[in-house]
Computed example of a mutant assay.
Amino acid sequence: MANLLERIKNAVMADINEVLDKKENKNPLALLNQYLKECEKETEKVKELVKRQYVLKEAFTKELKEAEELAAKRKKQAEIASQAGEEELFSFAQTEQHHYEERIVRLTESLKITDKQTSELEAKYAEMKHKLKDMNIRRLELMGKENMTRASYTMNKMTDKQGNSAGTAKFDEMETYIDGLEKKITNKYYQHTIDEKIAALEKKIEEKKDETFTS
């Protein structure tokens, strides 16, 4: 049964990996964006843990200072009680002193561990921030490549560099249209110009005829 479950698990994981591979090949940028979001969330979690460690460190430091002050206070009180011959008071003050001294040892060790944990978390947080920045740069690089790929694909479609036999390429069609339009405009221009020139010549001829007739 265990072997069967293991084979089923491996088969499922293989299918999942295959789907992820296909998805990555199909749209690697979208997959990277999704992965970046997840990494940003994890980085924020570590950032919050670092903040909590500083709060703990501050709390341990406060407790340690308080224990040291109370230990010193009870020590002095024990000395005064001893000098005064107050055995019961001396015993109580000394017991309290030992209790606070034990707390000092415990808090000192806890603070030491907290300091170490804080340093480790800070290092981890810094590492994650660097990796996140690197992945963002990687995303920009992929976006640049994707833009170039799309631009090349569009240009290839328009210039028909692949020699497709589906008809005239879009650029060729546009150039033909522009050439035809230019010819039409030029013809209309010359037609308009020649009409004006002929009219001017006719007027000039008529004026010469009038001059000859009057003379």
Rank of each mutant, 00 (worst) to 15 (best):
I80M: 08
A123P: 04
V46T: 12
K145N: 11
K116H: 11
E6W: 02
K47C: 03
K23T: 14
Y125E: 01
E44Y: 13
K73D: 09
A14D: 01
T118I: 04
F60Y: 06
C39K: 07
K37C: 03
E102D: 15
F90H: 12
M135T: 11
V19D: 04
I80T: 13
K65C: 03
V55G: 05
K47S: 09
M128H: 08
N136I: 07
R7G: 03
E68G: 00
V12F: 08
I113T: 15
K145A: 11
Y35Q: 12
A59Q: 04
L56A: 02
E102P: 07
K37V: 07
Y100A: 07
Q53M: 15
K124D: 01
P28Q: 01
I104K: 09
T95P: 03
K131H: 01
S91Q: 12
R52F: 05
V19L: 08
T43N: 08
K131D: 01
E69T: 09
R74M: 07
K26P: 00
V105P: 04
L20I: 15
M143Y: 02
E88M: 05
T61L: 03
E6H: 04
N136G: 14
L29I: 15
A123N: 12
A78I: 06
T61A: 13
L132M: 00
K131L: 01
K62D: 14
L70H: 07
Q77P: 10
I16W: 05
L20E: 15
V55Y: 05
Q117T: 12
K23W: 09
Q94T: 13
M135S: 12
A81S: 01
A59M: 03
K57F: 14
K62A: 15
T43D: 04
I137E: 14
